[in-house]
Amino acid sequence: MLIESGSPVAADTRIGISLTINGEARQLQVAPWTTLLDLLREELDLTGSKKGCDHGQCGACTVLVDGVRINSCLALAVMKDGAAITTVEGLAGLANRGAGSDGLHPIQEAFIEHDAFQCGYCTPGQLCSSIGMMNEGHAHTRDEIREAMSGNICRCGAYTNIVDAIEDVMQGEAAR
């Protein structure tokens, strides 16, 4: 359903979209103003991604869209029609379908090993963002990792441990 620009939109208007979410193809009907974050949390019960600032400043809502990290609070769901979305709930599926010791993605295992979380609120966004950052391939040093992850705020201050975890995974990938 195409809505003409400038036309009023009825409150009950729904638009059909197709998304692949954590490997599962989904056909959904969404209001045009529904953010990807609200779709994931409120309609699909994927509550790992957090609603922090709702302004794209904290990174708690970070998910991967076609392997690229985005702030899902700033993206309208209808704009992602046809995309592959990975939330924290689907990260294990990215890693050779559970190749980790506990079926976890290597970054999840590294976060546990390095105690890279305290309260855990930012952790889903940090995990997704770190995978997106590694996919980008621009960060190679601790300073570059810190800069590339600067859009994800940790109120507890676990930054050193987060960088340690990311470095371990990056070194493991480089060794392969």
Results as ranks from 00 to 15, higher is better:
142 R>Q: 13
132 G>L: 06
150 S>G: 08
73 C>N: 09
86 T>Q: 04
65 V>Y: 04
104 L>V: 06
134 M>R: 15
108 Q>W: 07
126 Q>R: 07
48 G>W: 12
46 L>N: 05
63 V>W: 04
24 E>W: 00
92 A>P: 02
39 L>A: 08
30 V>I: 12
40 L>T: 04
48 G>P: 07
146 R>W: 01
111 F>S: 04
96 N>R: 14
81 D>V: 08
79 M>E: 13
137 G>A: 10
104 L>I: 07
72 S>A: 15
72 S>Q: 10
3 I>L: 15
30 V>Q: 00
119 C>V: 12
84 A>V: 13
137 G>M: 08
97 R>F: 09
70 I>M: 01
140 H>W: 03
117 F>W: 09
23 G>P: 03
156 C>K: 11
18 S>G: 08
151 G>H: 08
173 E>V: 06
8 P>W: 04
88 V>Y: 05
9 V>C: 03
47 T>S: 14
101 S>F: 06
109 E>L: 11
156 C>D: 12
63 V>H: 04
105 H>A: 08
13 T>G: 01
103 G>I: 12
100 G>Y: 10
104 L>S: 02
51 K>H: 05
58 C>Y: 06
121 Y>W: 09
1 M>F: 02
159 Y>Q: 12
38 D>F: 12
62 T>Y: 03
92 A>K: 11
79 M>D: 14
149 M>T: 09
98 G>E: 10
57 Q>T: 15
39 L>C: 10
